[in-house]
Amino acid sequence: MSSKQFHIVVVDDEQAIEMLFKAFFDAEISSEEMKISYVEVASKCLDILENDDSVGLILSDINMPEMNGFEFLDIMKEKHPHIPVFMISAYGSKDYIDKAMEKGAKGFFVKPFDFDEIKDKIEEIAKV
């Protein structure tokens, strides 16, 4: 883990996700090393990104109100292409995955996901 605090943003319209992530990562990774922000709408994530350049990774759901994951990806590609975005979605169909990858997603986790996998991926990215 790098000395600098690794900032992750999780974008999911389901509030309970926050609790889940917290429950998992609190046990696994120290807050010194990683900070996780939780937003329920993609626009809020973009707001964060405007002001904070410490974000190293974004985990985003696809089916959300206001702006869905794909639209979010488009904007990310345009505005913050260097920030890796991983999708987490219950919709694990080939179409969805392909589409997301085309739009620049760096990976796709199908719900129900394996937290260990996610943790490994985060560590991988954080090392870079």
């Binding site: 919709y91 719900k111 129900p112 996901f113």
Partner: peptide, 13 residues
């Protein structure tokens, strides 16, 4: 299926 996957996510995790 996908609707169910969401709560299943919480169940399993």
């Amino acid at each position: 299926a996908h609707e169910i996957n969401n709560p299943l996510n919480f169940v399993i995790n």
